[in-house]
Amino acid sequence: MSEATEQNGKHFPEKQLWGREGFRDDPYIEAESLEVAGDAPAVILPLAAWLGLDDDVRRTSNRRIGVFVAPGESIDPLLDKLDTVPLIALQFPAFNDGRSYSKAEILKGRHGFKGELRAVGDVLVDQVVFMLRAGFDTLEVTNPVALKRLSASDLRDTPGYYQPGRGSAKTAGGFSWRRTPAA
């Protein structure tokens, strides 16, 4: 993520972290490696750097070490280590690159990932509901309209969904057609 934002030459001072209960402080910093992270208590490393850590370091470190995954990177190497990951940040380099939705579904739905699943990158208000339903816990937001709408809890959601899915208090727990058809 840090890599991507640096490459784009963008600087987002107003970057904020949002979860279902509202905006919250973000304890994590992004770093290329543990060495450059200083003594930050929570760090997000690129996938390769994270996988390069000793299992021991990951398990016994007194800081939280999360991992950043770009859409082109496979999550397969993470799957047997999920109990040692406190946070996975899945990237949306552009809002219309939907690969991270499938990864969220696989991580949360199939593998029961218990840590924080975070959406980073081009997070816009019109996709927030999809992200929550795909299993994201937190969203890293920079877009001004998204910030405004989220502050007002104005998501323009539909009152129910046709698919089962995480992330919605309103989900009745199944497909819409499982209800008795109207007479």
């Binding site: 219309n96 690159d97 969220a104 992200m131 539909t158 992330g167």
Partner: peptide
């Protein structure tokens, strides 16, 4: 319809 995983 508005599938969360398959809209993009």
């Amino acid at each position: 319809s508005l599938h969360p995983e398959f809209s993009y």
